[in-house]
Amino acid sequence: METTKVWFVTGASKGLGLALIKKLLEKNYRVAATTRNVQALISEIGEASEIFLPLEVSLTDDENVKSAIAKTVGHFGQLDVVVNNAGYGQIGTLEELSDKEARANFDINVFGTLNVIRNAMPYLREQRSGHIFNISSIGGYAGNFPGWGIYCSTKFAVAGLTEALAEEIKDFGVKATVVYPGYFRTDFLSKESARTPENSIPEYEAARNSEQAHLDEINGNQPNDPGKGAEALIAMSEEQNPPVHFLLGSGTDEFLNNKIKTITGDAEKWSDLTFSTVI
């Protein structure tokens, strides 16, 4: 069945974003796709057409984002599904990373997402329908990865703001889902994509081991297929009552269960102190 839904996808020139727009176009959805280098996207997909609109966007520039969404609505006449997928992995311990490095990661992963939400919501609110997917990470649910604290904290922020967003927009008929992808076989962990600290501290042996494991061992051996991940997102977009939280990929259930076990165990162990505050 032909569909006329319009998707707006950020970070679309590679990885899960690129896999998603390819699947969407195969299924006759209309797609506006953003990237920092529009020529790379055009070389992968093609020029602008009735079903595809490539856009060069700086997500940290609110006016630029506002213009991109306006162009999308102008080109297709509507906006139905927003996917905040753009982001990058900043490696480094909390002590190692400079203020500049930490803020840069938040600027893209969190504030870039907020810019899109802020400028997409007037259209979705007016038409009283739509679905916003915010792509977090399993590292946005479990942060016990040494050397990934800043990245994980950006993804925790994405999860938190999505929970609030879902409550804020439900009366308008608009849905919000935070997606926690596990390890997908993309270039996210490649040395060209993941950023390492400008000034590392040798004493952080656990962080260096984690860094090397991700860059040299996990990279290229991830168990999940981005094409199948894209299929799952598309299927979820068609649900009448989608979840606010969506684990995506093999292995994510292990992180879920381990964290529940840890928090529950700590709560039980320290319950006497927890309830010692009652007057």
Rank of each mutant, 00 (worst) to 15 (best):
S13K: 03
L18R: 01
A19I: 06
E26I: 06
Y29N: 14
R30H: 10
A33H: 05
Q39W: 13
S43V: 04
E44R: 12
A48V: 10
F52A: 09
F52T: 10
L59S: 04
K66P: 07
S67N: 12
I69R: 02
V73F: 11
L79S: 01
V82W: 07
V82F: 06
N85M: 04
L94A: 13
E96R: 10
F106V: 01
D107E: 14
G112F: 06
N115D: 01
V116T: 07
I117K: 08
R118E: 02
A120H: 09
M121N: 03
P122A: 06
S129P: 00
G130L: 04
I138F: 10
Y141T: 07
Y141S: 09
A142R: 13
N144Q: 14
F145A: 05
G147A: 08
G149F: 07
I150Q: 02
C152H: 14
C152W: 00
G160S: 12
A164H: 13
E167Q: 15
I169S: 09
K170S: 15
G173Y: 03
V174S: 10
A176V: 06
T177A: 04
V178M: 01
F184T: 00
F184N: 02
R185M: 04
N199V: 13
P202E: 11
Y204Q: 04
R208I: 05
Q212A: 12
D216T: 08
N219K: 13
N221R: 15
Q222F: 05
P223L: 12
A230W: 02
L233H: 03
I234P: 08
A235K: 14
E238Q: 14
E239K: 14
N241L: 01
P242Y: 02
G251S: 08
L256A: 12
L256Q: 13
N258T: 09
K261L: 06
T262R: 15
W270A: 02
D272Y: 10
T277G: 12
I279R: 14
I279N: 14
I279E: 06
